[in-house]
Design a protein around this nucleic acid. Structure first.
Lengths: 229, 229
DNA sequence: CCCGGCATGACACTTATGTGACAGTGGAGC
DNA sequence: GCTCCACTGTCACATAAGTGTCATGCCGGG
């Protein structure tokens, strides 16, 4: 699953440029044109990271930042601030605004991307990590390979994505709808019960060799990756 | 337990649209077509939030608002007002009508949903919170798991919802009717005594391992989560 | 001591989930 | 273009889990 980024920037040209480039770099990108819209879309879409302009119409970047930090469910959301040279750089530098990092305009796209990657790695390692681990299960994204207790686990593409998603938040229960969205994409229409079948296949593959079933079924709710039943 | 919303809107097309979308977003939705019906259903169903059209037949939105604010048991009910552009926007903006927030028609469904979420978070955090605690009992909605003094408590879906509801207001006594509505949904018709049975099952599960019964029976009134006996 | 309200175990029934079978797809290799 | 073959999405059916009702017996308050 590609990490999602919300760009809050009022300058349309820059906004478009960012959208284009970040998309090219493998992120899912959405844009908002002012602070108000930004806050709404954050609630609605809970992006994995926010790129935030310092100066914005309606609700300023600093204010957006403050509000995000004030709410528990967005408190840890990574924020990368964009500032123009001279714009109270000192304050931003100290990052007492609450941003996690900042870039001074004008900037090289490559620098921005690098900082975004670094920030994600720091705050949401499970999104960027080359390898995810849960107990004795290791999923390596680069080589697209899964092992359990060292032995290779053969998975089809769908089961791989499914496991990848589950491993990002072990313990958490996901409804079939949620899994459908995450693994098949939000605009695919297949039978909900198909999820069961793939979970079944994933289980079977992971159990090869007599290991315990790492997936918990939560009746009338969904599934979660989680040893104890 | 999904938060419940009552939509009071006379335009059938919009009403249906709202019902469909809010349902999709995970709310329980009911609709009323005018102010009078709205007030009745609020009494009867005590929704967690009301979406209220400004202009309504019989009893206007503003009047509904006023009446809700006048009664102690609905004084704190979150109200989100829908207004058409130009409809005394200033008054609404000041929110001296008593509404907690408003949206100007036409609006994007995503904005409405975001505002509803925000409003609920502000006014009824216990509805949205990921984990609830009461004494040694912890209910985690994300992992759909309950523990007591650290040990896992196995609950069926109904018992889980029941405990979830009770934990939102520990100490408060709920009638069987109220529990029925909250746990089974307002349009389900099962024997009232069934509540007893599920409370019994919940008790049994929570007592596993010799712990004290955290549920108090209030003769001829109902039940409450409350350790002092 | 009596009575309505409650607790509880039994049970017949619903529902949700696990699974093997199967037919359709599309790509790799020939 | 054709043939395999790994993968998919659906079904149907088996099974497990959870539900709603009752009958019975208990309990506390008047």
């Amino acid at each position: 699953m590609k990490p999602s980024i919300l760009v809050i920037e009022d300058e349309a040209a820059l906004s478009t440029l960012l959208e284009y480039n970040l998309d090219k770099e493998g992120f899912r990108v959405a844009c908002a044109a002012d602070g108000e819209e930004g806050l709404l879309r954050i609630e609605e879409e809970t992006p994995d990271l926010v790129v935030l302009d310092w100066m914005l119409p309606k609700v300023s970047g600093v204010e957006v930042c403050r509000q995000l930090r004030a709410r528990p469910e967005t408190r840890r959301m990574p924020i990368l601030m964009l500032t123009a040279r001279g714009e109270e750089t000192d304050k931003v530098r100290g990052l007492d605004t609450g941003a996690d990092d900042y870039v001074v305009k004008p900037f090289a796209m490559s620098e921005l991307v690098a900082r975004i990657r670094a920030l994600l790695r720091r705050t949401r390692p499970e999104l960027v990590e080359e390898r995810l681990e849960f107990k004795d299960i290791v999923l390596d994204r680069a080589s697209r390979r899964v092992t359990r207790s060292g032995r290779n686990v053969r998975l089809g593409p769908t089961e791989f994505r499914l496991l990848d998603f589950l491993m990002q938040r072990p313990g958490r229960v996901f409804s079939r709808e949620r899994l459908m969205d995450a693994v098949w994409g939000p605009n695919t229409y297949v039978e909900l019960r198909t999820v069961d079948v793939h979970v079944g296949r994933l289980r079977k593959a992971l159990r090869e060799g007599g290991a315990a079933d790492p997936i918990r079924t939560v009746r009338s709710a969904g599934y979660s990756l989680d040893q104890e039943r």
